[in-house]
Design a protein around this nucleic acid. Structure first.
Length: 273
DNA sequence: AAAGACACCTGTCCGC
DNA sequence: TGCGGACAGGTGTCTT
């Protein structure tokens, strides 16, 4: 479900929780990517101090510890009344003293809901992450240097969270199309000029998607239950066989690392060595 | 150290 | 209508 714009949209939707005190915790399903720890109950009585995001992880800092959330493939967070009925796959609930209930919903349970007594930025999952795509250290030169000894497909390279965080399957497809780069091109065969286009388009596409509230596929909604509108601006993702918006040639599908990859064989020519 | 296989799960859709 | 298989927005670990 969520890529970086969806996670950012979700995080912004949690702002009503700032300054509020946690009054109750209910864990209905422990078995996510990692077990939801019973120590999460230590958050009862804690006040929410800040919200932040690192990659696709949401960090809720409280007066007694930190909550680390990842939405995986199918997770979502919503704010609702504490009286609202639980839905199937509502695994974790936090109630707050302003009569809001935070529900973590995740059918596939690939997500994460952790309680940390230590600095979340030092947590192994966070500390090993690459640069933020919307930060100043995400540059064409950074990508170029990092790619010199890697010959894996450029699509896999930009989707590697240890290189740059937040570029998931949808936006990787879109950024490569906008950059006119074939997704199978070995990353070490692209030149600095290629990375300049790619870097710029990754930033532009992620930024535009955040402004639109993310991409709604199937049932993704933000914490307010609203859908995103970036889907209307997708050029290639989910459009196999449809004419390329630039040259009208039908878009092609190739699987890279088991992930659907849509591209235009004319606008994104295969690399020739 | 890079790169590939595999793991974790459920829901939906498509063809028979 | 039912069933099996493929596929879905992610990411970690293990093996080669």
């Amino acid at each position: 479900m969520p890529e970086l714009p969806e996670v950012e949209t979700t995080k912004q939707g949690l702002i009503p929780l700032l300054g509020q005190q946690i009054t109750a915790v209910n864990i209905r399903q422990h078995r996510l990517r990692q077990l939801v720890p019973n120590e999460l109950h230590q958050s009862v009585g804690a006040q929410c101090l800040s919200l932040s995001r690192r990659g696709k992880y949401i960090i809720l800092q409280t007066s007694q510890g930190n909550i680390l959330i990842h939405l995986g493939m199918s997770g979502s967070l919503r704010l609702c009344s504490p009286q609202e009925e639980y839905r199937k796959h509502d695994h974790v609930t936090l109630n707050f003293d302003n009569q809001l209930s935070l529900r973590y919903h995740d059918p596939r349970r690939f997500g994460l809901f952790l309680w940390l007594n230590t600095d979340p930025l030092q947590h192994a999952l966070i500390a090993s992450l690459g640069v933020e795509p919307l930060a100043t250290d995400f540059t064409a030169d950074y990508l170029y240097q990092k790619s010199r000894n890697k010959k894996l497909a450029i699509k896999q390279f930009i989707m590697d969270s240890h290189i740059v965080v937040g570029v998931g399957n949808i936006y990787a497809n879109e950024a490569l199309f906008a950059s006119k780069i074939h997704p199978l091109t070995p990353s070490n065969q692209l030149q600095l000029a290629d990375y300049q286009r790619l870097q710029r388009h990754i930033v532009d596409i992620l930024s535009a998607a955040i402004i639109r509230g993310g991409t709604t596929l199937r049932d993704f909604v933000n914490s307010q239950g609203e859908m995103g509108y970036f889907q209307q601006e997708l050029m290639v993702y989910g459009k196999e066989g449809q004419p390329c918006i630039i040259c009208q040639k039908p878009l092609q599908l190739v699987r890279i690392n088991k992930r659907s990859t849509i591209y235009c064989s004319q606008c994104q020519p295969a690399f020739c060595s």
